[in-house]
């Protein structure tokens, strides 16, 4: 199936969960990334059980501090 990950079209096998996608995409700080699928945030407890479908649009949002010091 094809899904859009961070704006890029990618091919992944069917049945892929969000947590497997996080692994496959080598996401830094996987415990603390916010994931949205089709503009809806996936609750952190539901990353394993959320299965992606063809055409899904996935975005990763990272904590960024920085600035003052």
């Amino acid at each position: 199936m094809n899904i859009v990950v961070s704006g890029t079209l990618k091919e992944y096998p069917e049945g892929l969960s969000v947590s497997r996608l996080i692994e496959a995409e080598n996401i830094e700080t996987p415990m603390y990334v916010s994931v949205s699928v089709n503009d809806e945030f996936v609750k952190s407890g539901e990353l394993d059980s959320t299965v992606l479908r063809g055409g899904d649009v996935v975005e990763f949002l990272y904590f960024m501090g920085g600035g003052r010091r």
């Binding site: 700080t29 603390y32 916010s34 945030f41 952190s44 949002l61 990272y62 904590f63 501090g65 920085g66």
Partner: peptide
């Protein structure tokens, strides 16, 4: 976007 802050040192800072 982020329901709660990460624990200290869990994510890299500047």
């Amino acid at each position: 976007v982020f329901p709660a802050p990460p624990p200290p040192d869990a994510v890299p800072t500047c």
